[in-house]
């Protein structure tokens, strides 16, 4: 999801941990896709989609529709920021934040070529073959990642703060549920656990993860894969490693028992 590409392009990947996350991230994903004009991926799994659960009402009042730099009707001449020096509409105009005004077909004056080939500011593919144009468009697209960082949902924190915790847990996706359950079981035993759920996996929230890890005494990553995908991101972007890991990759979700046992073992050894 993060690396699959034909050439480099910006994207957002978000991993819901439960139904409420899925509901909230779904409408946020649509908004982000419009605001950033780039693909947004919701990383679900079977545990999330194949289970039934009764849940309280979602907070429907929180839902907003954000279309970003979007012109759906009228005349593009009324949007000077979308035009080049000669008054021509530029679908791929070079902008500071990397996002250009998107005019729907049907908007007066908005001739454009939406192009899967590299292209210039108008969309012409032949011009996109020029080295300077290619680099400028590539850099423009990638600037969206900086904007994305300001818009995407931050990691979610549970339990006690990492400074006060005996053990601090880093997870993403549906590991959230069984992990929270394990934490609840540990509470009566006097074990204090901090947990950070990485909600937006890409762009990776390096700063937040780094301060979480640096504040923690003992760190554990629990993740549902063989190779340590989250751990790899932590190493790459935070230049840190965790003290312990727990993986599950037999096609089944974690059980709370499994996480409870691991945390108990970590604390006993600490």
């Amino acid at each position: 999801m993060i690396h699959a590409a034909q050439g480099e392009f910006p994207r957002v990947v978000m991993a819901p941990g439960d139904r409420e996350d899925a509901f909230v991230l779904a409408w946020k994903a649509f908004n982000l896709a419009d605001q950033l004009q780039t693909p947004v991926v919701i990383l679900g799994d079977s545990y999330l989609s194949d289970n039934r659960e009764s849940i309280p009402y979602y907070d429907l009042d929180a839902v907003t529709v954000e279309r970003g730099k979007f012109v759906a009707e009228g005349d593009i001449a009324d949007h000077p920021e979308a035009l080049g020096a000669d008054g021509q509409y530029f679908r791929y105009k070079l902008t500071e934040d990397g996002v250009s005004v998107r005019a729907l077909p049907g908007v007066s004056g908005a001739t454009q070529l939406v192009n899967s080939y590299e292209h210039d500011e108008y969309g012409w593919g032949s011009a996109g073959e020029m080295a300077t144009v290619r680099s400028a468009q590539d850099e423009k697209r990638m600037r969206k990642m900086e904007l994305a960082r300001t818009l995407v949902p931050p990691p979610a924190l549970f339990g006690v703060p990492p400074e006060a915790a005996d053990v601090s847990l880093l997870v993403f996706g549906t590991t959230k549920g069984p992990a929270l359950e394990a934490i609840r079981w540990l509470e009566p035993e006097g074990v204090r656990v901090a947990m950070m759920q990485v909600v937006t996996v890409w762009p990776f929230p390096a700063e937040e993860v780094l301060s979480f890890l640096d504040a923690a005494k003992t760190t554990v990553i629990v993740e549902g894969n063989l190779t340590g995908q989250l751990q790899g991101l932590v190493r790459q972007h935070c230049l840190r490693d965790v003290d312990h890991t727990l993986h599950r990759y037999d096609g089944r979700p974690f059980s709370p028992e499994q996480i409870y046992a691991k945390l108990t073992e970590v604390i006993a050894g600490a």
Partner: peptide, 23 residues
């Protein structure tokens, strides 16, 4: 709106002025 495939025909996307999509 004009939409093109990929091939010599699709290079026509560059030779028309329209609301176009070359995917």
């Amino acid at each position: 709106v004009m939409v093109w495939g990929i091939g010599c025909h699709g290079n026509g996307a560059d030779f028309y002025r329209s609301q176009g999509f070359h995917g």
